[in-house]
Nucleic acid binder design. Structure first.
Lengths: 308, 308
DNA sequence: AGTTATCCATAGTTTAAGGTTATTGCAACA
DNA sequence: TGTTGCAATAACCTTAAACTATGGATAACT
């Protein structure tokens, strides 16, 4: 292998520039003998003289000139690396891969993308929307940096921080607007439309009714909350949606909304990341930003829910 | 300044590639703790984690990936430098700046350019033809690597090696072909055409006649041997030319050649270089090549002189 | 669940590398 | 012929980097 050091290259460049051991050494903040030794060792590793030493001046040899050009490239590369590292210091930078579950993504992402981009200019955000199990797997494999999911996840190798809680809202045909709000019991008797299997929100909704997810039931599965609301509008049944989805999903459907009495169904949303990620500090910051975005969004949503 | 070392970058690259401290350390031919320490120190200098260490694997962080790209560039540059140096090992390479006096250049250069190029492929030869004082100055200033001149030069800071001696040949009008060959005495009475001042060959010719160069005389100065021979052909006078110039200069002129009796006028041609040049060894080689080229050339020249 | 295996980090020690000051040697110049 | 300027060398000291041995955490196995 090549056995020269970056230090030798820096000394070499200084000497090439100054043409004088004493002054070059001063520029490198070392003593003249130290520089002499390093230059000699560099010449030995390269196998040829880089400088011609003369009683009156020190001059690059032809070989030395060729070397100088290559050394310049190397040192500029090293400087760039140092600059890049300094700029990245403690700042969230480069790529940040965030996973989000489908029952959050459409409502939260538009806001937090904006907020994060404003907060961390130059951040290369990459978003992935998929079901919790896959998010967990990709996070474990290092293909994601963090994920926004429903808590708890209870993976010992993950850290989870809560972001916010959101209630579930009942969506029923407009015709039912004046009927009493059902409780968990009565809800079980109704035709409850749910997301297809795999969605955590499906399980959360079922759990509210004390029903088993795997229990074979005659229910129609939708692939998105949007679909479910459309089906409700068509009078096929009722469904639950998280509060955050209300403004978007009920905008154009003729359905009525109802909030449950206590104990209200709800879920906790949080961020998770690998315990070992070096981004922990920055991800805490990101969590704070997301939390505030969600809070703002919740304010608007509450208004919307009230209006309906 | 940046305080990382090339060694750390090599270790970093190995670890990035292997994703495993033990195997990367083995690839670097060091122990695992040594690698751990160097990686940690690199991370400290750069101010951020490069790898995420996990019980099962070691993975680059986003920052680490950006760094890896820059590190690759730096290391490839270093490798190139090492390769370049290895190729240049002890071989005469790169630029070689040779100065030659005008009364040698036209006759010797065509041959030695060919011979040197054959001997040192890839050599970037740069030739300069000018008068001895300027050659000496440029050599001293490091603007030439070596020069081919008439000896002695007697500069204490220069090394001189003899290449060959060459006799001076008398050139006179063809009509004089049968006249006896003049000696130094009788030559002084003839109309001797010489090169303009500054040419060493002018002084050498004058010295043969025991005449002082600065002595005001009615003589016509030519700017090249070629001009002088043309003037002889026109019957204006006689001149001396070095043996080596004979084949080229008398090819198309109607003049006759005559060799002097002993003591024949002659001059010693040699190569000079700075005592301090690191190319000394290689220049000795070059001198040997030039010596042989000149010998070959002298053989042809002798034949040509005999023919006339 | 206890045990083993794997793997990275840390500690303590030795060796090599790089720095310092003091001195020598060499050329150039007055 | 000293004198001066400058690079090389020597002797010594400090820091860096290697090694062996050990520790602690996490998965995997029985």
């Amino acid at each position: 292998m090549d056995n020269f050091t970056l230090r030798q290259l820096r000394y070499f460049e200084a000497l090439a520039q100054h043409g004088h051991f004493g002054r070059a050494a001063e520029a490198c903040a070392i003593s003249q003998p130290a520089l002499s030794v390093q230059i000699r060792e560099l010449e030995e590793t390269l196998g040829a003289a880089l400088f011609e030493r003369n009683a009156r001046q020190v001059r690059l040899t032809g070989f030395g000139e060729d070397v100088a050009a290559k050394v310049r490239d190397i040192l500029r590369g090293a400087d760039e690396l140092a600059d890049f590292a300094r700029l990245s210091h403690d700042r969230l930078t480069g790529r940040l891969r965030i996973g989000v579950i489908p029952t959050i993504a459409p409502y939260l992402l538009p806001t937090i993308i904006g907020d994060l981009t404003r907060r961390y200019p130059g951040l290369d955000m990459r978003l992935r929307e998929t079901l919790t199990p896959r998010l967990i797997q990709e996070l474990a494999e290092g293909r994601l940096d963090t994920a926004i999911v429903a808590l708890p996840v209870s993976e010992p190798s993950f850290t989870e921080v809560p972001l916010f809680s959101e209630d579930f809202v009942l969506v029923r045909p407009s015709a039912d607007a004046d009927k009493p709000v059902p409780n968990a019991e009565t809800l079980r008797e109704m035709r409850l439309l749910l997301l297809e299997e795999g969605h955590c929100f499906r399980d959360q909704a079922l759990s509210f009714c004390n029903m088993n997810s795997s229990l074979p039931r005659e229910l129609l599965d939708g692939s998105s909350l949007s679909t479910l609301v459309q089906m409700v509008g068509a009078g096929i049944g009722v469904t639950l949606i998280p509060e955050m989805a209300v403004p978007v999903e009920t905008r154009s459907a003729s359905v009525s909304l109802a909030r449950f009495d206590a104990p209200r169904p709800s879920r906790r949303i949080g961020m998770i990341w690998r315990n070992t990620t070096p981004l922990a500090d920055q991800l805490q910051e990101v969590a704070e930003v997301v939390r505030q975005s969600a809070e703002t969004l919740a304010g608007q949503t509450a208004g919307a829910t009230a209006r309906t």
